[in-house]
Amino acid sequence: MKIKATVQNNVTSVKMLIPHSMETGRRKEKDGSVVPAHFITEVTATCGNDTVFHAELGPGVSKDPYLSFQFDGAKAGDVLKVSWVDNKGGSETGEAAITAM
């Protein structure tokens, strides 16, 4: 996953792009078989000891989810950790150092 976090005036802006098929469970192959649902259910971001972001996603989120949010109180050099889990037990954790804008 790609994470970009920049801080300006005490506000950190985070953008992330998570490669994931986000199958809805309603799409059919050409032979008529249904592609099973496979999508990210939760995304969490932490900075220091605080959870600064928590989202629940459903299959209505586009393929390769892009998410952005803002939070207070971090400074350049702090590390932002992002992790996600999907409905099949898959998961990934990534991190990025926050940079000054």
């Binding site: 506000v11 809805t24 900075c47 605080d50 959870t51 600064v52 972001f53 928590h54 989202a55 629940e56 996603l57 459903g58 299959p59 209505g60 989120v61 586009s62 989810p65 892009y66 998410l67 952005s68 949010f69 803002q70 939070f71 207070d72 109180g73």
Partner: peptide, 19 residues
């Protein structure tokens, strides 16, 4: 589609792409 917890340090301002 999606649900966001607005945690104490977070701004109520989010972006994403949806179907």
């Amino acid at each position: 589609v999606a649900s966001f917890d607005v945690l104490p340090r977070m701004k109520p301002d989010v972006s994403l792409r949806i179907r």
